[in-house]
Amino acid sequence: MRLDPSEEAVSPVTQTNDTTVLAAGCVLWRRSPVRSELEVCIVHRPKYDDWSHPKGKLKHGEEALSGALREVAEETGYVADPGAELPTLHYLAGGRPKQVRYWAAQAVSGHFDPNHEVDRILWLSTSEARGRLTQPRDRDLVDALVRRVEQP
């Protein structure tokens, strides 16, 4: 599995500046149609040969939640119903600080068609998703989702 060599962990950024890349995404989930257990959708990006949550850069002036839902639709083909905001991730990408805001989002409808950014998606149990995700920071988001969805 090839990791994006331009991404490295950094301390949390407390404020953004003109060089910070702003992005947003979702931890997309559903109930298994077979066992009713929580499943998470993860995406495969062929450019980096990695598995992650759907996310992407915000367009100029775009609200973070709108961008997150747009990215889910573009990368997975699913319409999502957003829920709680999850932890924001901060890291370096291409030598620049990157801030990615995330939301828990339940898949409402849709179907996947491979595209230039994402060639495969998987619906996995939370434990399977944690094992398949490339970046440890993405695994922490699965844990945050479970705390939000499974606990009252």
Results as ranks from 00 to 15, higher is better:
residue 124 L to D: 04
residue 57 K to L: 08
residue 69 L to H: 10
residue 52 S to F: 11
residue 147 R to Y: 00
residue 131 G to N: 15
residue 69 L to V: 09
residue 62 E to H: 02
residue 140 D to E: 15
residue 122 L to S: 05
residue 96 R to E: 15
residue 113 D to M: 00
residue 61 G to N: 02
residue 141 L to S: 06
residue 146 V to R: 06
residue 53 H to R: 00
residue 84 A to Y: 00
residue 93 A to M: 13
residue 117 E to C: 01
residue 110 G to Q: 11
residue 148 R to T: 03
residue 60 H to Q: 12
residue 77 G to I: 07
residue 57 K to W: 02
residue 98 K to C: 12
residue 119 D to M: 07
residue 79 V to L: 14
residue 150 E to K: 02
residue 68 A to R: 10
residue 133 L to N: 09
residue 85 E to C: 06
residue 80 A to S: 09
residue 129 A to M: 05
residue 90 H to A: 01
residue 117 E to G: 03
residue 75 E to M: 11
residue 140 D to P: 00
residue 97 P to H: 06
residue 55 K to I: 01
residue 72 V to A: 15
residue 74 E to K: 09
residue 72 V to Q: 10
residue 76 T to Q: 02
residue 53 H to D: 02
residue 56 G to W: 09
residue 134 T to M: 12
residue 105 A to N: 06
residue 106 Q to D: 06
residue 139 R to K: 14
residue 134 T to R: 14
residue 97 P to N: 08
residue 102 Y to R: 06
residue 100 V to I: 15
residue 81 D to Q: 14
residue 72 V to L: 07
residue 96 R to C: 07
residue 123 W to P: 05
residue 70 R to K: 13
residue 149 V to H: 01
residue 103 W to A: 02
residue 112 F to R: 03
residue 108 V to C: 03
residue 56 G to F: 08
residue 83 G to N: 07
residue 115 N to E: 12
residue 65 L to E: 04
residue 81 D to P: 00
residue 76 T to S: 02
residue 91 Y to K: 09
residue 112 F to N: 06
residue 126 T to D: 12
residue 130 R to Q: 13
residue 127 S to E: 11
residue 82 P to I: 04
residue 87 P to L: 01
residue 63 E to V: 01
residue 95 G to D: 10
residue 127 S to C: 03
residue 51 W to L: 06
residue 125 S to I: 04
residue 92 L to T: 03
residue 133 L to G: 11
residue 127 S to M: 09
residue 88 T to N: 00
residue 113 D to W: 01
residue 125 S to R: 04
residue 111 H to S: 14
residue 144 A to R: 02
residue 139 R to V: 13
residue 116 H to P: 10
residue 119 D to C: 07
residue 52 S to M: 13
residue 78 Y to W: 10
residue 120 R to H: 14
residue 70 R to T: 12
residue 110 G to C: 09
residue 121 I to M: 11
residue 120 R to G: 03
residue 122 L to P: 00
residue 93 A to H: 13
residue 145 L to A: 14
residue 68 A to N: 05
residue 55 K to V: 08
residue 63 E to T: 03
residue 80 A to I: 06
residue 128 E to N: 07
residue 135 Q to N: 13
residue 62 E to D: 11
residue 101 R to W: 05
residue 132 R to D: 04
residue 51 W to E: 08
residue 64 A to R: 06
residue 114 P to S: 06
residue 104 A to R: 08
residue 128 E to W: 01
residue 120 R to E: 13
residue 122 L to R: 06
residue 54 P to F: 05
residue 124 L to A: 04
residue 91 Y to P: 05
residue 103 W to C: 01
residue 111 H to V: 05
residue 93 A to C: 08
residue 71 E to W: 12
residue 55 K to Q: 15
residue 85 E to I: 12
residue 51 W to R: 12
residue 112 F to Y: 04
residue 99 Q to D: 12
